[in-house]
């Protein structure tokens, strides 16, 4: 069982925080195919959010094809989100490492490097 967390200061709507956390947990392998998500009551008990918030998060995850609700039984993890195959991931990491070293050599600090990455990502 995973532990849901809500940060009321983040500005991200609570339902989206639940969606993001569960997606993150699936990606990290903390949640695997066939695992059951917390029931709405359990989720509410962990986070003190409105039950409709949990329903909405689970609906969104179902819409994205990551989980499937079985009426009266629970909501189960279906798939892993698209992650590149292991060798592709290793190659990309190596490229990115080289790029970061280059950025440091040119005098960019971590903050500037991150900003550049995000700006380029959103282009």
């Amino acid at each position: 069982m995973i532990i849901l967390r809500i940060n009321t200061r983040s500005g991200v709507p609570p339902y989206l925080q639940i969606v993001q956390q569960i997606k993150h947990d699936i990606r990290l392998g903390l949640l695997k195919k066939g695992d059951k998500l917390p029931t709405v009551k359990e989720a509410v008990t962990m986070t003190a959010v409105n039950p409709n918030t949990v329903f909405k998060a689970y609906r969104e995850l179902e819409h994205q094809g990551l989980v499937k609700g079985q009426p009266g039984i629970g909501v189960f993890v279906l798939n892993n989100p698209d992650t590149p195959p292991a060798d592709a991931q290793a190659r990309l990491t190596a490229d990115l490492t080289r790029w970061i070293q280059e950025a440091r050599k040119l005098g960019l600090d971590d903050e500037a490097t991150e900003a550049l990455f995000h700006i380029t990502l959103r282009k």
Binding site: V40, K41, V44, T45, A48, N50
Partner: peptide
């Protein structure tokens, strides 16, 4: 406060 709100959210769920 959190405990109270949790009780309230649970009641709404029930």
């Amino acid at each position: 406060r959190v405990e109270f709100l949790t009780s309230l959210a649970q009641a709404a769920t029930d």
